[in-house]
Write a protein that binds this DNA or RNA. Sequence first.
RNA 1: GCAUCGAUGGUCUAGUGGUAUGACUUAGGCCUUCCAAGCCUAUAGCCCGGGUUCAAUUCCCGGUCGAUGCACCA
Length: 577
Amino acid sequence: MIPVSNDVFEKVMELAKRRGFIWPTSECYGSVAGFIDYGPLGAMMKRRIENIWREFYVIQEGYYEIECPTIAQEAVFIASGHVSGFADKMCQCPHCKEYLRADHVAEAGGINNASILKNEVLSSALAHCNCLACGEVLGNVEVFGFNLMFKTRIGPGSQRIGYLRPETAQGMFVDFARLLRFYRDKLPFGAVQIGKSFRNEISPRQGMIRLREFTQAEAEIFVHPSCKNCHPMFSRYADYTIPLLTYTQQQKCEPPVLISMQEAVAKGVIANEYVAYYVALTHELLARIGIKPDRLRFRQHLPDERAHYAADCWDAEIFSERFGWVETVGIADRTNYDLTAHGDASGTPLTVFIQYDEPKKVPRRRIIPNMSVLGKQYRTKAKAIFGQLANATPTPSGADVEVDGEMIHIPADLFEVRDEIVDIRGEDIVPHVIEPSYGIDRMCYAVLEQAYDEDTAEEETRVVMRLLPWVAPVHVAVFPLMARDELDTIAAEITRVLHKSGILAEYDDSGAIGRRYRRQDEIGTPFTITVDYETKETHTVTVRDRDSMKQVRIPVVKVPETITALVNGSLKFSSMT
RNA sequence: GCAUCGAUGGUCUAGUGGUAUGACUUAGGCCUUCCAAGCCUAUAGCCCGGGUUCAAUUCCCGGUCGAUGCACCA
């Protein structure tokens, strides 16, 4: 197998396809751009990466995972702004047939705020603008919205509109009231979700980097607006130092600077402790799945790049040989935008009642009407008067209230004014949301690309996927040196014992031993156990390390615990020799 | 979506208006006491649809997928 191309992307995707990591979807019908299948090894590796993500967010952070439908009713996305905002206004140049962003053309033609104009208005405004591609005057063009959400109908014959979610986040926002109860009405708390999201990309390319259906792992952390600088576990990452590319540095074309999270928050480089905490956590997580630190950077969104409601946003970018810096994780402070929007639209206040340490003593004037007189005198209007009176400003002669547009004077003897001191025990606040959002597919690609390696062994090119042991789909392979003389039955028995320990072990006795090692190297299996003739004498086997190709001999009875320790990282192969 | 180029076993490829070459891989067998050795055998392919033609993998048109450029990219 001599790879012809020097492009790592092509090499790694060819390997991924051939070995069963990633396949084009529904290939027998010709595939569809923007959709991929994860094959047996890819699905396993993806699941391992997702589980590492869970170790961080669910186990370490204590944010439970929920699972919402991938389809939601239209109201959800109207409130979130996706129905109106997740669409591009486009037009087609009648001369060169180029598709253009209509608002961009208009802005270039001197029309301000083009993106908020109605399609028809924008269309006529464009008539005198020049095509950005061919320069011709556009003339009569139609402006149409291209919404990136997949639209569908819910139920037979129903007019009820649904959309495939473009992000998992909305599910966690609309479940806020339930989540708040689950976490016993206290901030901060978080909910996470790993699942599919859908965007009908105009032109998906670049293999698995831009997909129309992709897996997101998102956390929504709900915090008190005035407690964004008091993350309870901030000390964990306070001294964690990573290279940050702030927006001012980007504007000056300066390189990233190494800075600790504590310092970054203190200097205002990162907006608050929460964002800084998850920037650092993300760095640790990505390193854990095998991203090399020198190919990882954190870039702050430029002020005009981030969503209008976001207070701060940082992208974790991974360097790809093929695609350059690829945004893989976004960590945003979404403020109270989402909860306010859904609270307003749904009529369910998405707020938390925060109790004060001490009830506040607040003077209050209550107006208590004498209803028995009021009722007799004003009859059907009495109830409305009662309501209005509570907000009225009484004078010694009485109070004026407005009912159905009519001013009514209520004499002072029909109500009692009582000034009292009341206890205000707390207030309703809308929490702010800190959102780390991970593109799992991009992480998978980056892991594959960075793991791909070729070295020379026995004057042959050896293709090795240097996947970390806890990410590799197959943990260990078990080989009998020869498929005879009981070596095969011993090896099969060892495989069985490993399976009982929850280890994914693959037995293989076909062909020459060297070929079997190469096969496992190519799919990234970190360790190999070989049963040889000495096994029958001494009850020991060799453990071979994929990266060094070195072997050490251990007792058969120690195989499960040794492999378990090697795979979870608590034992290093280099320390066994 | 537009433009240009491309698509032959699992992979890499040769080639052709009369259904196809070689290598590697895979499977079975022989051999083999630790890194893709050797021998025998087998499996497996012209992206899809339409047109021209007696005959299309080959020529033409359309589509799909991929690469590149444009455009797009919460």
